[in-house]
Amino acid sequence: MAAPRSIIIDIGKQRDEENAKEDSATKKKPIGTKFDGRFPLSHWESAVAIGVLLFFSIALFCVYVTMPAAEFGKIKLPRSISDLRILKDNLAAYANDYQAQFILGYCSTYIFMQTFMIPGTIFMSLLAGALFGVIKGLVLVVFNATTGASCCYFLSKIIGRPLVNWLWPEKLRFFQAEIAKRREKLLNYMLFLRITPTLPNTFINVASPIVDIPFHVFVLATLVGLIPASYITVRAGLALGDLKSVKDLYDFKTLAVLFLIGSVSIFPIILKRKRTE
């Protein structure tokens, strides 16, 4: 009877090994795992990304073709302060004559750039201040930035995990660890990140759903936390002639103010930690 029993044990071990191999093959890669150099998205994920991009592109195109005629050859996305001054001069009369249509086109462009992480939204924020003033410009920038960040959040929720693991593995591990330590006061911590330049906003947008930050916390922290930096940028748009480069926006004094405001948001966390010690 010993032989059959040993055979049964061997068969059981083989099945356990096979199951373990299947589990390891189907399991998702942990957060922060480096990829082997291959493009991280599967065929299905790539199809979703292309489909979403096409949808947004067609919607943006439809907005532009319904706008009143303009000399679009003079209009391009600015890449420097000098480009922004030229764009502002070309758009000033147009934005005043067709304000509603222009705002629709401006918002669509800003949200598109924010959703797909296209650099240049800081120039769009400066343009808002130059064309609309501080109050209206600030409302437009905060609304567009929050809407675009929310679209980026949901897009990343669908296809973002392998892409973020591929691009920022170490930063993602750090972010995951920090979020895990601050679950009880997550809104305060997210406000601190949004107000201060501790982590890039683009990274926060795509990494938040991956580290399980609830959407209501994400959107509230974005809406409130972007106000101070947006105000600084929009206000600077009123004096484009005095601005030499984007770096002039955030000097030491400005950064110190942002960190001071951000520290207020995490003060309850520090106070609670001292009480528990």
Rank of each mutant, 00 (worst) to 15 (best):
S6R: 06
S6K: 03
I7S: 04
I8F: 04
D10L: 02
D10Y: 01
Q14L: 15
N19S: 05
N19G: 00
A20Y: 08
A20K: 13
T26L: 03
T26W: 00
P30T: 07
K34P: 04
K34E: 13
K34A: 05
G37Q: 08
F39R: 08
S42H: 01
H43T: 04
L53C: 10
L54T: 08
F56T: 03
F61M: 11
C62I: 10
V65C: 11
T66H: 03
M67S: 09
E71G: 02
G73L: 11
I75P: 01
L77N: 04
L77S: 05
S80F: 05
S80V: 07
I81T: 00
I81C: 01
L84S: 01
R85E: 05
D89L: 01
L91K: 09
L91G: 07
Y94M: 04
N96M: 07
Q99Y: 03
Y106K: 01
Y106A: 03
I111A: 06
I111F: 05
I111D: 09
M113G: 12
M113W: 11
T115A: 05
M117D: 09
M117F: 11
I118Q: 10
I118F: 07
G120W: 13
M124I: 06
S125H: 09
L126I: 06
A130I: 01
F132S: 11
G133R: 14
K136M: 11
V139H: 02
V141N: 13
F143G: 03
T146C: 02
G148L: 02
G148C: 03
G148M: 03
A149S: 15
Y153R: 12
L155Y: 09
L155V: 11
S156H: 03
K157Q: 14
I158E: 02
I159G: 02
G160S: 06
P169G: 12
P169D: 13
E170L: 13
E170T: 15
R173M: 14
F175P: 14
Q176F: 02
Q176I: 02
A177F: 10
A177Y: 12
I179H: 13
K181W: 04
R194D: 01
R194V: 01
I195T: 06
P197M: 10
P200D: 06
P200E: 08
N201H: 06
N201G: 10
T202V: 14
V206C: 15
A207Y: 12
I210G: 06
V211F: 00
V211S: 07
V211T: 15
D212M: 12
V217Q: 12
F218T: 09
V219K: 00
T222N: 14
V224T: 08
G225Q: 07
I227S: 05
A229Q: 13
S230T: 06
T233G: 00
V234E: 06
A236Y: 08
A239F: 04
A239T: 08
A239I: 00
L240R: 10
G241H: 10
G241W: 00
D242Q: 15
L243C: 07
L243H: 04
K244N: 03
S245Y: 01
S245Q: 02
K247C: 00
L249R: 09
F252P: 01
F252N: 05
K253P: 01
T254G: 09
L255F: 08
G262A: 12
S263F: 15
V264L: 15
S265V: 10
F267I: 09
I269E: 08
T276R: 13
